[in-house]
Structure formats: C-alpha cells, structure tokens
Amino acid sequence: MGQPCLSGGTLEIFLEAVLPPVLVHVYGDSPIARAFTAVGYQLEARADPPAAIADDTSAVLVASHGVAEEPVLRAALAKGVPYIGLIAGRKRGAAVLARVEGGERVRVPAGLDIRARTPGEVAVSVYAELISLRRHRATEPPNVITR
C-alpha cells in the first residue's frame, strides 16, 4: 500500500503486529518449575519470579512439591488469574484443593494428557494447554466456559 509523499514519490509502510508476551507466574524451585521457565522463554512467555502475582498475569503454575501451595493458589484465585495449574497427582491435588475456596478453578493435574514424564515434557503439556485455551477463547462466544 503506497502513501503519497509531498516530494512526489511514494512511501511504503509495513506493519507487523507485536503482541506482548504472556505473563506466567511460576511458583516453586522444582525441576518442573525450572523447565516451565525455560520452555516459556522459547515460547516468548515471560516468567515472573516467585514474588507477588502481577495484575496482568495470564497464568499461575504452582510446582513446589507441597511447599506453601495453598497461599499461592488463594492469591491467584483472588486476582482472577485466567489459568491456575497445580503440578500434583490427582489424589494429592484433590487434598490440597479441598482446603482452598474456589479450588474447582484450579487445573490439577495441570497440562494436557500427553503421558508426560520428564520436567520438560510436563512443561510442554502445560504450555500446550495454555495455547489451546487461549485460541479457543478467541474464537468462542464470550459466555462459553472451557475446561
């Protein structure tokens, strides 16, 4: 597309959309938490250090192997973070969420079921779920809730 130029020539303008990175709050210092941060870097997601949850956080992942999980989950729920995931088996996850009001919004086990075993595979499964949910929300009517 050309724009007329006062000097008689044309000026071509190319626009490339640059979207802000997804902000992911990773809580824990486990191998899975470290893998989640590393994989996120490759996907241009910005991993937040384990401090207070920022207002523009898109996802919170708790991967601390049972250390102070409940306060982080409560904080994420109170902030209305769109995706909250707990790295835990179904049995332990259910026990943790039974003590957290609104725990039904927390995904446990977090990630798509791709039979992940290694920390990197678990991180990929969680990011795959985040991507899938984000794409579905962009194409669905506003009141549709996806699980």
Rank of each mutant, 00 (worst) to 15 (best):
P142Q: 14
S64T: 13
D55S: 10
R147T: 14
R115C: 10
A76K: 07
K79W: 06
R137T: 05
H65A: 09
A110K: 04
V126T: 01
L43H: 03
A45T: 06
V126I: 15
A33M: 12
R92L: 07
L11P: 06
A33F: 11
T37A: 14
G89D: 14
P142I: 10
G80Y: 01
G28N: 04
A47R: 05
L6F: 13
E12F: 11
M1D: 14
E12P: 03
E70L: 14
H65G: 03
R46K: 11
R115Y: 12
P31V: 09
D48Q: 13
R107V: 15
A88E: 08
S58D: 02
L97M: 03
V26I: 12
Q3M: 10
V124R: 00
A54F: 01
G80V: 03
I13C: 11
A116T: 08
P82N: 05
P119D: 12
F14M: 12
I131F: 00
A76Q: 04
S7Y: 14
G28H: 02
T146C: 04
G2Q: 14
R92N: 04
Y83I: 04
G102T: 11
E129C: 01
V122H: 02
S30P: 02
R46M: 12
A47H: 05
A68L: 10
A35F: 10
R135P: 02
A59L: 08
V62G: 08
L77M: 13
K79V: 00
L61S: 03
L15Q: 10
E12R: 12
A63G: 09
E44R: 01
I32C: 12
R115S: 14
R117K: 15
R107G: 05
L77V: 10
I13Y: 10
V24I: 09
V60S: 07
L11D: 08
E104V: 04
G40F: 03
P82E: 05
V124C: 02
V72G: 06
P4M: 05
M1E: 14
G111I: 01
L133T: 00
P20H: 06
A78P: 09
V72S: 09
L73F: 03
F14Q: 11
E140D: 11
A68P: 08
D113R: 03
A47I: 06
S64Q: 12
V106W: 04
E121C: 08
L61H: 03
L130E: 00
Y83D: 04
V67R: 15
C5V: 15
A47K: 07
P109W: 06
L19P: 11
A95S: 10
S125D: 04
E140C: 12
T139K: 07
V144A: 05
F14D: 10
Q3Y: 15
R92A: 14
A45G: 01
A110P: 05
V62N: 01
V124Q: 07
I87N: 05
P31S: 13
Q42R: 11
R147N: 13
R90S: 15
V60C: 03
V62I: 00
P109H: 07
K79A: 04
G28E: 11
T57R: 06
V67I: 15
A95P: 02
V60N: 07
